[in-house]
Design a protein around this nucleic acid. Structure first.
Lengths: 242, 242, 242, 242
DNA sequence: GATGAATGAGCTTTCATTCAT
DNA sequence: AATGAATGAAAGCTCATTCAT
């Protein structure tokens, strides 16, 4: 086993241990035991415990960074957005263990490292925020606080990945991608139904038709259909007010 | 100072220390120093370190549980949903320190406690999932995987609270409430616009450079596509052990 | 046993261990074993290993500093010089263990501490150098490089103490004081005798084996002395006989 | 590069490293790095770390032993003494690094080696002691404790060499030789001067032997009140702590 | 009850030495 | 012979927990 293989083996072992126990509870002894080398060997490849952790996280960050593409609003946005979601999901699901640590607090690590993590989070968010702002200019993103949108989006994605990592629940990736995309596109609450009407049994047809006054902020549901959401959405793209 | 006052004082001190340093970096010494009692006194009120932490978290959970109301789809759903969001936000923002720990990995704590945390998360999710299923029956929730919807919702909320706790960014609560509600209701992507169409000057508001005639991809905002996210590479500091 | 007693006990134990094994070979485990306390207790009283050592050395230095008096050349110099020698000897012989470390290289300690040691050595030397310069102005110190004189003096003193510390040889203190004083005053080589002359049977008086009668070694060359030194020699002060 | 060349290279490297860092701080890694060989190679030429050190020291000892000549009191003693001093100085100054270690405590090394060092010191001292005893028989050495004289002499020499090794101060060798020789011959205190006389302002030239009348120091401190001690109490040396 | 000195298991890291290649 | 990766026994230090006062 050559140097880089051993290094890989240690990295793998470290990743496994970190993800099982978290940073603090992971002991160097655990890592070397898993990698089946002597303790000293660990220090032949890494200067210290936190540097392995750092390396793992940085690797993940790099893969993420490489996966995310800036959305070009003038091209097929849906494809691009889905691609990004898909890519991120792929990277993170590939390393669920680390993901759950990376996405988490990571408190108690040395400040410099925490700062690095934070910088990464901010960078990702900035990237998304800008894309959303671009989208607003092109009328494909609802007006509003793009930073907040970015935060929500990231949060939703994180959570589902987090769950996949931590709990048993493992969803098909494409389902995650589609569902998140749908959330971003249409939300899931359909409130145009008059509360009163809604009270009735699921009423086959449900629907948007209900409104007495005009749906709150929503421009008329557009007669057509029963189709749940798609049809309902007229079209709009109100860059500004409506 | 009687027993329960002292206990309160210790809990307060513990909360402050945990939130400043995270679980592992918080030392019993820090807590007793802040509470101005002797170290032994701490153990008069709590059997050990993790039990204080547990108690704090349980308190938060209880408050959360008390705040969340099951949504009755036959009544004014918007008001109820907003109320729930508002209540959760209120509880969590009231204790940002603990929140960021609670919402995080909390790895490294003893398994029993981690289990408890997980149980709590699942409970919250179950509550939400059920509400969403109800909603679906009443036609006010889009068909689809309610569990996934719940996860997204929780994630989005967590993230914004997390940011409020960790970063400087402090938003007006009502804005958070409204924005999240809007997300759930309508998403923010408006894609009905054909890519080509979107390419036109968003009417009124034009994007920065985006010319009129510009073909779709020419508009490419920020040309560069993939930003590398990993830029923030730095180097470590080094406290001492661990 | 109260805090300061325990502290003393640890200090004592540390002194003993340091002197037996030297700094590096002295383990904290040895110290606590000797003091019969747990390892953690050590760190209750001292922040780390080198700080105990530092404290021991600083204590010695302080005692030395307190013992050395600046010589006033206008008063009884002999008494003062002897007093200083005596005081230094007393302090150092009282703590032979530490002395041998202090006087030595102490290499491998952290630079800050080594610097401190060096500063101490320089201070002592400066004090002596100045006294000698004063003495030169008053004509009681031979002209010449006072710094070099200081170095010699310190070296001679160190060595004899070093020997007392390390080897079995334990001399009566007063003998050390007197002998060193004599060295400073007259050296011990008596070369006024012409080499040639010396070659001959010790002439009249001279010589150990030679004469039977005659106070053996004490005859004192006397008269001869054309050398200034010789002339200067008022009277003897022979350690013993006379 | 053949075996003995490689061995030499390792010894040279070891000497350099030991002198720069001291025994404990010198790592085998440093030595092999300097010698540009692999770590294993080191152990091909030396059984262990301390043995290289031992070999270096033994080499120094051998050179010293070769340099020191037994003084023949019947010949030109001054020349012989100076020759010895000169030879010792030459050997030691040639290897200041090792010298400072050799002359020092060297504690913490294994007992066998410490014993060896001690044996060497004793041998040197014995040699000198015997020479001095011879000298006494020939009347060229003041009566007195020859062992003590030897100790003083060695100490003075050590100290000046030590300083040359450690501090910046580098003296011309011949000056060291001469000064030490002078010390041995005449000391440097000239106390025949009457304190009273000395009390006068430094009197331009104050000759050492000056005094006319008055038994030198026998003459009481001169009525004038100021007791030596009292007056003398100038100030104190104060290193740091305290 | 309150105190805080004492404890000691346990952790990370170092480095002289070994040995398969 | 030469290499350098691997080893593992220590060592210094931490800190949750205990307990005599």
């Amino acid at each position: 086993m050559n140097k880089s293989q051993r290094r890989e083996a240690l990295l793998r072992a470290a990743r496994a241990v970190f993800s099982e126990k978290g940073y603090h509870e992971a002991k160097v002894d655990d890592i070397v035991a898993l990698a089946r080398v002597a303790k000293g060997t660990f220090y032949l490849y890494f200067p210290d415990k936190r540097s392995v952790f750092g390396e793992l996280v940085r690797g993940l960050i790099a893969r993420l960074g490489g996966a995310i593409l800036r959305v070009d609003p003038s091209a097929d946005v849906e494809a691009q957005v889905k691609h990004n979601i898909r890519a991120i999901v792929a990277v993170l699901l590939d390393d669920p263990a680390l993901t759950s640590i990376l996405l988490s607090h990571a408190a108690g690590l040395d400040p410099a490292f925490v700062k690095e993590l934070r910088a990464f989070r901010q960078e990702v968010k900035l990237l998304l925020t800008r894309s959303l702002a671009d989208g607003q200019r092109f009328g494909i993103v609802e007006p509003g606080d793009t930073e907040l949108y970015a935060t929500f989006t990231i949060g939703a994605l994180k959570e589902v990945l987090f769950e996949n990592a931590l709990e048993a629940r493992v969803l098909p990736r494409e389902q995650i991608v589609t569902a998140l995309y749908d959330l971003l596109r249409r939300g899931y609450l359909r409130m145009d139904v008059a509360p009163g009407a809604a009270a009735e049994p699921p009423a086959v047809e449900r629907g948007p038709r209900a409104p007495k006054g005009a749906g709150p902020q929503d421009a008329a549901p557009e007669g057509a259909g029963r189709t749940r959401a798609g049809a309902a959405r007229g079209r709009r793209a109100r860059p500004k007010g409506d």
